[in-house]
Write a protein that binds this DNA or RNA. Structure first.
Lengths: 228, 228
DNA sequence: TCTAAAGCAAGAGCAGTGCTCTTTTTTGTG
DNA sequence: CACAAAAAAGAGCACTGCTCTTGCTTTAGA
């Protein structure tokens, strides 16, 4: 059952990988909206209908690319977190943020695929959730570690938001206090606001020294979330 | 020259408006990627090729819609700023933020059009810049007013970023000190990070009470930018 | 008032898209 | 080797944006 049907399955996996690779190339060249099954097939020297043996629809292909993108970004974040090691929490946070930004700048179309406007009529299936969570988990880890040492300031939390924050903490990080969970999620969203603005051209004619500006903004983000 | 050629021009303007309206309806229903000239033409009972008399290409139609969207968002922000009147700077800021969020939630596709992933191969022409700036100008106004009273805290600014911040301030708000300009732009980007995350589904299964969470996050944003 | 110019709609057609269906070819295995 | 399962091919459908040509209608100037 393993090596017996292996030959066929191996071939299938190889073709699947080749399709994804070609699609990714085309994604990088033209963007998600112009990803065409026919062009992918053309590049691989097969007929367009043959692709449907491997991906039941264009959306399924997109889903596969989305998962890969989430995973790649998550891996980059994890690597940065690991490299930062035992540095001060705020520096760990900044390191992860810069990894996210760097990955986004080197893979703009894949970033747009996962953090840009959702493709209309396309709802990301549950399959993408674990991959999507990886980057968030890294961020959670930074805050968790900060709480071990004295690297986390007290944070205000209005009575109004307390129930939601408690629910949120129970959901994503039961060992973190509600106010920390809330601050973290906010910082997470704001980080991607910075990256998206830079990537999507909103900083054109506004920010020149993007690198330094990002570092500055992200430092503020970290402090605002209680890290030091 | 005014009323003489008026009949033709008037008809032309009316048709142009009708096209934009139909396109906007379709945009709201299906999203930018599925905006089809043929469908718009069908809705108006004209033939598709006739549309090209009014908009030289699909992109030009999109540009018109983009400008309208920027203007609508800017108007919403201005209205909120005006309604907030002489309130505390932090409250003015929050009011504008909530107006942005509300507009985005009621016009998701138009929001995605202007703050989502850029359409590949399509570069927003210079024409969109003034409209795009309106919301930013409102935000600048909040900070400017805050500086009249005692509503603005001192902000840190690393020596590293000082030149960029000075350049930035000179560019967008010469009467504001560099550190304020930098903080404002960062807050601006982060605001849209919050809105985009909510709108693009990144908060699904994460944040329940979006309204309150947004208020909390945006309050933190304001304080982080020195408002009080 | 008559005519020439400008404006506009229509239609045909090109090259491309996702997707489905049927037929043919390949291929690993009993 | 023969056979059944898997893969590929091909034709075709209903779309898309866009271009070009052909006529008709309105308008403006002589």
């Amino acid at each position: 059952m393993t090596t017996a049907q292996g030959a066929r399955e191996r071939a299938r996996n190889e073709v699947t990988a080749a399709i994804k690779e070609a699609a990714r190339r085309q994604l990088a060249a033209e963007g998600a909206a112009k990803l065409s099954l026919r062009a992918v097939a053309r590049e691989l020297g097969m007929v367009s209908s043959a692709l449907y043996r491997y991906f039941p629809s264009r959306d399924e292909l997109l889903t596969a690319l989305i998962i890969d993108a989430y995973d790649a970004l998550g891996a980059a974040a994890e690597k940065a977190r690991h490299a930062a090691g035992e540095a001060a929490p705020v520096d760990c946070f900044i390191a992860v943020c810069e990894a996210v930004r760097t990955w986004a700048l080197t893979h703009p179309h894949e970033y747009a695929l996962i953090y840009g406007s959702p493709v209309p009529g396309y709802a990301a299936p549950e399959t993408t959730v674990p991959a999507a969570a990886r980057t968030g988990v890294v961020l959670i880890g930074v805050f968790r570690d900060a709480r071990q040492g004295p690297g986390l300031d007290e944070l205000p939390l209005s009575a109004e938001l307390r129930p939601e924050a408690a629910r949120l903490a129970a959901e994503i990080a039961p060992d973190l206090p509600p106010e920390v969970a809330a601050a973290m999620v906010a910082a997470w969203a704001q980080l991607f606001g910075l990256v998206s603005f830079e990537l999507f051209g909103q900083f054109n004619n506004v920010i020149e020294d993007r690198e330094r500006f990002f570092r500055h903004a992200v430092t503020g983000l970290a402090r605002g979330a209680g890290l030091r």
